[in-house]
């Protein structure tokens, strides 16, 4: 996982020719931890500290009407203005793309970034929307029924990715 994050960090620097005007926004919960890790790695390499925000997309979900009960809403905390800057959205797993759609809609309610890029640790395929990540830690072919979980030490686990059969 560390090697994957290091590679993503180098790709971010290469693609953007440095860290000028870059900001990071993690999608709760896993994405926020990964955004902080990415920021730490970028600081090691380039010495610059990027602002990191946290996005909770619950209020922008497209499946609220289909759920039996309302999911818990947590706070969105973006303590900086990203107008005319580049926002790199960070999430743990890219699957249908619906989370990213919700995240982009919400970001645009906060301001008008010059560009939105997407970094994910795992791309497991099965997109339902035309969305593609700019930076991928690792691509995992999965079947739609499987569940992919990223466990992180920030949540009190060992860093690892588990794939479960939804049997």
């Amino acid at each position: 996982m560390n090697r994957a994050m290091s590679r993503v960090a180098h790709e971010v620097i290469e693609r953007n020719r440095g860290l000028t005007d870059l900001t990071l926004v993690g999608i709760r919960t896993g994405g926020v931890h990964l955004a902080h890790r990415l920021a730490a790695r970028l600081k090691e390499i380039e010495g610059a500290v990027l602002p990191v925000g946290a996005l909770d997309i619950t209020l922008y979900r497209d499946d609220l009407n289909k759920m039996r009960e309302q999911p818990a809403v947590r706070k969105t905390e973006i303590g900086f203005d990203f107008t005319d800057k580049i926002v790199i959205l960070v999430d743990d797993v890219l699957f249908t793309g619906r989370t990213i759609r919700a995240a982009m809609d919400q970001l645009i309610d906060f301001g008008r970034p010059r560009e939105i890029q997407l970094a994910v640790l795992i791309d497991r395929g099965h997109r339902e929307l035309p969305i593609r990540a700019n930076y991928v830690g690792k691509s995992f072919p999965t079947s739609p029924e499987e569940k992919v979980k990223v466990l992180l030490k920030e949540e009190g686990e060992d860093d690892r990715v588990i794939i479960e059969n939804a049997a």
């Binding site: 209020l59 922008y60 818990a72 809403v73 969105t76 906060f110 301001g111």
Partner: peptide, 23 residues
Amino acid sequence: RLILDTAESFKEVGAREIKKVPT
């Protein structure tokens, strides 16, 4: 507790420039 915790998240929405979510 659920109502108060949820309200904390919604208070942040009221502090945004665009005080509206599509929920």
